[in-house]
């Protein structure tokens, strides 16, 4: 009876009405109201049983685990194959004459001159300024060009970088540079001064010195970013490194290489020539973050 009165209370708007029902009820009246409520409840239960639109009760417990097939694509690791040769389909002939090809960089601020004769056999040399070119015939000539910032001689190539960055039409200047290279070679002069050639330390000495710089200076510096520099090769005085760990795939790797590593190497090992980074910054599944 109490539960019926509670339901009546809810139907008529709360505890205040319940009290009124209680006060006004007679046993006959209460029995009649209780029968009405039971009939109403039975009707509702019947409707719920037969209604197709009624939603089933929502279970908050997860369904039991089933062996579902994994349809995700297999993530493969991208590897690199050794590249043997890249060549455009262009006929090349050799008639003994000095031939020079100019190859401006994509950025346009530097241009590589490829000569069919050696400029500094088996070695490389980096001229960072006009003063550094003293005693080196070809470098002295090239640094007479006002726009030149640096010059890298490596075997049969000479790479010139302009002070001004950005795209530049190299064709007019390249003709002049080509003439300078050709004249120097025809005169029997070297691209690099004899003093540099004479004082050049052995490959092993350079290798040991570079390794010391990497261990003592470079790697402790990049370790803070999870990076690691590995010496891959020293050929003559040309150094090739690989940037690993957090350096691989990092957008600041080029900046680290040019402003940090180059400076540290050249300061500690003055006879180091070209420095190349052979890191494949795109290989692996997720370089830099992995």
């Amino acid at each position: 009876m109490t539960s019926i009165l509670k339901k009546l209370s809810n139907m008529f708007g709360g505890s205040k009405n319940t009290e009124n029902v209680r006060a006004e009820s007679t046993p006959e009246k209460a029995t009649r109201i209780a029968e009405d409520i039971r009939a109403k409840e039975a009707l509702q239960a019947s409707q719920a049983e037969h209604s197709p639109t009624v939603n089933p009760p929502v279970s908050m417990t997860p369904p039991p685990e089933e062996a579902m097939p994994d349809h995700r694509p297999l993530q493969r690791t991208i590897i690199q194959a050794p590249m043997v040769v890249v060549k455009s389909q262009e006929a090349q002939t050799d008639d003994g004459a000095i031939k020079i090809k100019a190859e401006p960089s994509r950025e346009g601020d530097s241009c590589k001159f490829m000569v069919n004769k050696s400029l500094f056999a088996g070695h490389s040399w980096f001229f960072s300024s006009f003063e550094s070119a003293e005693g080196s015939p070809l470098a002295e000539k090239l640094f007479s060009l006002d726009e030149l910032e640096s010059l890298l001689i490596h075997d049969s190539t000479a790479t010139l970088t302009r002070k001004e960055k950005g795209h530049f039409d190299w064709k007019p200047m390249a003709t002049e540079i080509g003439k300078m290279i050709r004249d120097t070679l025809n005169d029997g002069q070297g691209a690099v001064g004899q003093k540099i050639v004479d004082e050049m330390p052995s490959e092993n000495v350079i290798k040991e010195d570079i390794q010391k710089v990497i261990d003592a200076e470079v790697n402790p510096g990049v370790a803070g970013h999870g990076g690691k520099i590995t010496l891959r090769q020293v050929e003559g005085n040309t150094v090739t490194i690989e940037m690993g760990g957090g350096c691989q795939g990092c957008s600041a790797a080029d900046l680290t290489l040019k402003q940090g590593i180059h400076g540290a190497f050249r300061k500690a090992v003055p006879f180091v020539g070209a420095i190349y980074d052979e890191t494949d910054h795109s290989s692996g599944q997720n370089p830099y973050f992995s």
């Binding site: 590897i79 194959a81 050794p82 590249m83 043997v84 890249v86 455009s88």
Partner: peptide, 12 residues
């Protein structure tokens, strides 16, 4: 210009 790239041995 058409160009060719030749790669060395690799195992997949």
């Amino acid at each position: 210009e058409p160009y060719s790239v030749t790669f060395g041995p690799v195992t997949l």
